[in-house]
Amino acid sequence: MKRQLLAGVFLVAFLLSAPASEAPPQLKPFGRGSWQDVLRAHAGRPTIVHFWGVTCGPCKVELPLLGEFMKDHPSIDVVTISADLVPNLSAATQSMLEKSGLSSAENWIFSDGFVERLRFEVDPSWQGDIPRTMLISREGTITTIEGSAEITDLEKWSDQQPAATR
């Protein structure tokens, strides 16, 4: 019995060391169908979805501002989606989210090499330019801001959103 348990422990330890640990658990893999998951999970709540990437210059400027915005607006759900197409990005992405005060946001990372399909599911007219922000009202109305969003515009939109109930 002891031998059986020991073998089990070794097996568990071996499996834990497998590549599953490659991506930090905080980043959710964004694959086929994830966009609908995001929309379903936040239905009825005002939500800001921010597409960005670590290799995008304007994104680096905007991200900390979004972190500040999230802190000041707890009634708005903030979702970030890293849409960069560079391999092995999890650590850099996580680090930049942490530095920007966004580690507690709902953070996703593109995890399907067929990015054309991922983008098509989000918005067929989106060709991959980042940053890109989608403001989703309680009623599900989506307003898209291409390029860097002005925080004042986010605030204006947020003020128009009736308070949500959890």
Binding site: L15, P19, A20, A23, P87, S111, G113
Partner: peptide, 20 residues
């Protein structure tokens, strides 16, 4: 437990390949 962990590991690997 082993099956669950194996699935998680396999998903991680699969996910890694899909991401490429």
């Amino acid at each position: 437990l082993a099956f669950f962990l194996w699935q998680t590991a396999a998903y991680g690997q699969m996910n890694h390949q899909h991401a490429s």
